[in-house]
């Protein structure tokens, strides 16, 4: 069971995926989206990990140590900011939808719309 780490990351990923698909409340969906994305980021960072490795900072001062792969960390920094941007935009839409429909429930909104037509 060397790769239990990856397996648990996949469980978190699937949980986020499920929340995002199944929960009809938009705020829940957005939280699920964040959970899913951070699980992916965790997966990427775990890929670059080395046992007993240290952070890739001030390498010339400490020769001989094992260092983790710095590339995934750099990618993740980008990814985190992307996910907060998506979250903010989605929250803005949610607030506006609530003003229009009085609910944040996607199923409810669909029902109200089909009644209107």
């Amino acid at each position: 069971m060397d790769n239990l780490f990856y397996a648990m990351v996949f469980i978190i990923f699937l949980t986020g995926f499920w929340i995002m698909l199944r929960q009809s409340n938009l705020i829940k969906k957005i939280i699920g989206m964040n959970i899913m994305e951070s699980a992916i980021f965790l997966f990427l960072v775990a890929i670059g990990y080395v046992k007993e490795g240290s952070a890739p900072i001030a390498i010339d001062a400490n020769p001989g140590l094992a260092y983790v792969n710095p590339l995934p960390s750099a990618l993740i920094l980008t990814g985190i900011v992307v996910s907060v941007s998506v979250t903010a935009f989605a929250l803005g839409l949610t607030v506006r939808l609530y003003q229009h429909y009085g609910t944040m429930d996607v199923d409810e909104i669909t029902r109200m719309r089909s009644e209107e037509l």
């Binding site: 995002m20 969906k29 989206m33 998506v86 506006r96 909104i109 669909t110």
Partner: peptide
């Protein structure tokens, strides 16, 4: 349009994830 947009956003975030 807003409802369509949030649906679109959720689906495409799932896709890009």
């Amino acid at each position: 349009a807003m409802e369509a947009s949030i649906k679109y956003l959720v689906m495409s975030t799932l896709g890009s994830g």
